[in-house]
Design a binder for these strands. Structure first.
Lengths: 229, 229
DNA sequence: ATGTGACTGAAAGTCCGTC
DNA sequence: CGACGGACTTTCAGTCACA
């Protein structure tokens, strides 16, 4: 396949995983919507300056645009997705002894969901001193209905920055288990803006949780467990 | 820095590591020499089709052009480099019991050097049957005078393909320790052409040799040893 | 919300040189 | 070998209206 078509397909994939329209990507990249449309269809020999703009709008490195994992182009954010209430998809647990606040999310996140998590978790944190806690986050089940990983939509990513800034007051750092290399890339951007020292891990379940336990200097966690198979 | 300058600098680096001139790169990529010059100087907003041509000419993936490790732009292939005779930079050892043929090279390689290795190693192999041996190659010391890794020049890469085709008759597969991600990329191209099933490893000494021993199902090798520190 | 054809000015890219 | 320039052709970026 021609590199122009491949690249176009790639944008389409990543855009679908982010749950945004061509119009939104147009706004975020500063490129014309109909121009982006023709790029996605492989009809343009796009230049490096515009490649950079698109990568920035999708919050990935340029290299990831070419060598990264591939996805389907099915839109991740579907209305049906929200039939299961967020309350049932959001779990959290405080380990008072080890000073670890763990939480996990499955499925997709809206901006409201982030604000809800914010209020709940800040309520817990407020019982602690500055930088006393460590966050342990599990995003591995943040998947769309098609079973493929979903990342934050741009709207959600912006709320996540504010959310993380709040958490930063009580939490020294964060360890986050990711659902894809894409999410690692995106969270690198988000945490760079929020300022929270964060490690984003992606890989096989066993090795990724082993690595997280190692970083946290613990042997287990009641919420985020190693699979026993 | 502007993406156009960054990309230009990147080409210059990789070209220097490969030891080829703008003229040679022009010939191999099919792009005009004066055009390549202006791209390297960051004066062009190069398009994706030409980016692909350059990546192919440098034998790396497009993603590696953007996210890969960085080098100085000092030319790797200097005349002085060859003051130490190849005989002293080429070591080999046959493990008759484990059926492993190991060899290592330090410094740069010329086309003649490859032909010399070919004759020596084929002499050894001819005592064995088809696919009876396994190759274990150490390229970690293939460095230029500036101490930075060097890869095969295109001329050498072509001879390496022929060399490997010969070896393929007696060797089932090859494990190669590399000096850089760049060399991994390049050897992926070379071995794809020669057809020899090959694994190219790059990383910290301990982990890379450990991995190699694991792949070879051995606990040690007289030529290629783990550092004891 | 996206696909498409048509259009223009700007820039990419080629080919010829000189230094 | 590489920087740089001039003159030339081709193509991309960017924007429409319309389906």
């Amino acid at each position: 396949m021609d590199i122009r078509s491949e690249f176009g397909q790639r944008i389409r994939e990543l855009r679908a995983r982010s749950g945004i329209s061509q119009e939104m990507l147009s706004f975020r990249s500063g490129l014309d919507r109909s121009y982006l449309s023709s790029v996605e269809r492989g009809e343009r020999n796009i230049s490096i300056v515009n490649i950079e703009k698109i990568a920035a709008a999708l919050q990935v490195s340029i290299g990831y645009m070419f060598d990264g994992e591939r996805f389907s182009a099915t839109p991740a954010y579907q209305p049906k997705e929200f039939t299961i209430p967020f309350l049932e998809r959001f779990k959290y647990k405080l380990d008072n002894e080890k000073k670890i606040l763990a939480f996990s999310v499955s499925g997709l996140l809206t901006g409201n969901d982030v604000e809800y998590m914010d209020s709940i978790l800040m309520g817990i944190c407020s019982a602690f001193g500055k930088g006393e806690l460590t966050l342990f986050v599990d995003h591995r089940e943040m998947k769309a209905l098609d079973g493929e990983p979903a990342v934050y939509s741009p709207e959600v990513a912006e709320k996540a920055v504010l959310f993380q800034r709040n958490l930063l007051r009580y939490n020294r750092r964060a360890i986050v288990l990711c659902n894809s290399e894409f999410q690692v890339q995106q969270l690198n951007h988000v945490t760079q803006e929020s300022g929270i020292p964060s490690t984003h891990l992606f890989g096989q379940d066993k090795e990724v949780i082993g690595r997280a336990y190692q970083l946290l200097n613990i042997n287990g966690n009641e919420l985020i467990k190693m699979q026993t198979d």
